[in-house]
Design a protein around this nucleic acid. Structure first.
Lengths: 112, 112
DNA sequence: TATGATAGTGTGTGATGTACAGTATTGTCA
DNA sequence: TGACAATACTGTACATCACACACTATCATA
């Protein structure tokens, strides 16, 4: 049972950084929080509302996303789109992520 | 200048979880802290002593690594090797890591 | 009419890489 | 031979963020 706790913790740590990249990649076109949760879920990324909404707000605060309200529908929705600054950071983060991946793959191949 | 701070933070977050996987992958054969730093550096993973030594101790405490002192040389060295439990967790973590990677690659391809 | 779905806000907690600080000894170089 | 870099390790506080908990509000459906 303890193994699961350790794995869950480690997987959660893996998510840090990765979630940001996933959200930035998903924000090339405008999308709103609740919809993004379903989109990411379909892609294989399980994320709770309690995690995504604060993340969106933090990324906007940091200037990586821009938001606008759409109140024309019966339900008001906050749309997010990546900013120019966000695009630069997304690309840098993706490069770092890629480098890390190549390293891990190299180690996996060597390790066996 | 602020961009760099954000990127540095995000890259650090990326490391969380990834470092654990890298260390577990690197511990199929016994190796000691100081040497591991150089090995990982050569592979492209920059890690400080202040980060690696506590990490090794934590992983041992969690039962993922086993250690033994080698005092035959002029310098005593603490060798670490992955435990059976650690192998299970390494494999699980690698699977999760792989899943996440496929998702990110899918998003990258779709995003453009 | 009740409840699930839809859509969002607010805030505290636990885990971990980093940073700072330290000890100790060996090996190398001037 | 002394200074210093390299080698090898331990201890601890801090910043950050996914998660968890709590909440509001309204629409759609049974």
């Amino acid at each position: 049972m303890k193994d699961n706790v350790i794995i869950d913790n480690l997987v959660q740590e893996l998510k840090r950084g990765t979630l940001v990249l996933a959200v930035l990649l998903n924000s090339s076109k405008p999308s709103y929080g609740y919809s993004m949760i379903n989109t990411l879920k379909d892609l294989g990324i399980e994320i709770e509302q309690n995690t995504l909404y604060p993340l969106l707000r933090r990324l906007e605060k940091q200037g990586l996303l821009e938001s606008s309200w759409d109140t024309t529908d019966s339900r008001p929705r906050k749309y997010y789109i990546i900013s120019e600054m966000g695009k630069g950071i997304r690309d840098s983060l993706y490069n770092e992520w890629n480098k890390t991946n190549k390293v891990i793959e190299t180690m996996v191949v060597k390790g066996e």
